[in-house]
Simulated scan of single mutants.
Amino acid sequence: MPFSLFGASKIPLNDVHTIEKSIPNIILWAVPVMLFFTAIEMVVTYYQEREFYEKKETIGSILVGLGNLVVTAALKLGLLYLCIWIYNLIPWRMELQWWTLLPCYIIYDFFSYWAHRVSHEQRFWWATHVVHHSGEFYNLTVSYRLSWIQHLKIIFFLPVAFMGFHPIIFFVTNQIAVLFQFWVHTEYIRKMPAWVEYIFATPSNHRVHHGSQEQYIDKNFGATFIFWDRIFGTFEPEGEPVIYGITTNIPNKANPIFINFHELTDMVEDVRKAKGIRKKLFYIFGSPIKIAEEKKRQEAGETAEVPA
């Protein structure tokens, strides 16, 4: 029988539970491994007397991570229904072939770059991502700091689903992409071989992304591959020691509710106070940097026009 990649049969929606059981729960399997390496890093940090961890912030990271696992589990079935519906809608459905994981992963990472970049350039999406940047210490628990409302960004990945990849491939790709980002959140891995640094988002490359200095802000968005940043002009090598956190750091470091929703709350308050639809939209979709500058001018009593 000749090989055929496209033209796979539709998946009956009443089979969604069967498909769900067929998707390996890679993240759940990986949790004990992640906790093991996190514990090792904590112990080594303690005995070396390095300031890579802070008690309240670590508690906050763990609580945020646990909440994210619960939210992800609760939404999984709904997202799977969406993926199967899209899969059935298009005529170029791909058969379940595990080698399609590679092109799916590369394409997925391309859209991840843009989703990540937009999450820094527009405040609405920044509110779904700031959780990850609010830590002032860089360690493996930072990888747990994933927003409870980050799944809104599924909209950025719908083009991948519409390309016809099997839903199982799509979900496995997502899990691997999330897990890849665990190991890059550490101070203990410095520079890797040049070819690795050139292709992948290594700890060195990703430390830059978490920097609050001017030269590091909005740089190195790549999740797995850093060459997207090289192509689109957002790459910055690690130079001076990175100062972590956001430009205005949060006070409640152990409260997962505050960590997740403080920016959303501030945005709603800014929109409520703003006069005119243009300014309200600016406070929703404007650049977080420009919004911060605008608010500083207001606090200083200056009158400033809304940036175009």
Rank of each mutant, 00 (worst) to 15 (best):
L13C: 05
F258N: 15
L146W: 11
W125P: 00
H210F: 05
H116E: 03
L89A: 09
E187M: 07
N139F: 09
I11V: 03
T265Y: 14
H206P: 08
C104D: 05
N255T: 03
S134G: 01
E136N: 03
C104H: 10
V43N: 00
T38I: 03
T186A: 00
T224Q: 04
I26P: 06
I217K: 06
N260Y: 11
D270I: 12
L69G: 14
Q298E: 14
M192N: 04
H17T: 12
E121I: 02
R230W: 10
E294L: 11
T224K: 08
L281H: 06
V44Q: 02
F180N: 08
E41I: 02
E41H: 00
S134V: 14
I155P: 10
T224I: 11
D270F: 15
F6E: 13
Y46A: 04
M192F: 05
W85A: 05
G135P: 09
P167L: 09
H116T: 03
Y108I: 00
S147M: 06
F170R: 04
L158I: 14
Q215W: 09
Q215I: 15
H132E: 01
K279R: 14
V268R: 07
S61V: 08
R123C: 10
G222T: 07
R145T: 09
L75V: 12
I86C: 07
V160R: 03
R278N: 15
P256E: 03
F157H: 14
H209S: 08
K279A: 09
I106H: 04
V172E: 02
L152V: 13
K280M: 03
L75C: 07
A73S: 11
V44D: 03
L28D: 09
W85Q: 05
V71Q: 11
L79C: 13
E294N: 08
V268H: 10
N25P: 01
E269H: 15
H132N: 06
F165C: 05
T141P: 08
E197L: 13
P32R: 04
P91H: 05
S204N: 10
F37H: 07
E54R: 09
V130H: 07
W99H: 11
G7V: 11
P237E: 04
R145F: 01
A161V: 12
P167K: 04
Q150G: 15
T58G: 02
I277Q: 08
I26D: 02
P24T: 02
S119G: 13
S287D: 14
S204M: 08
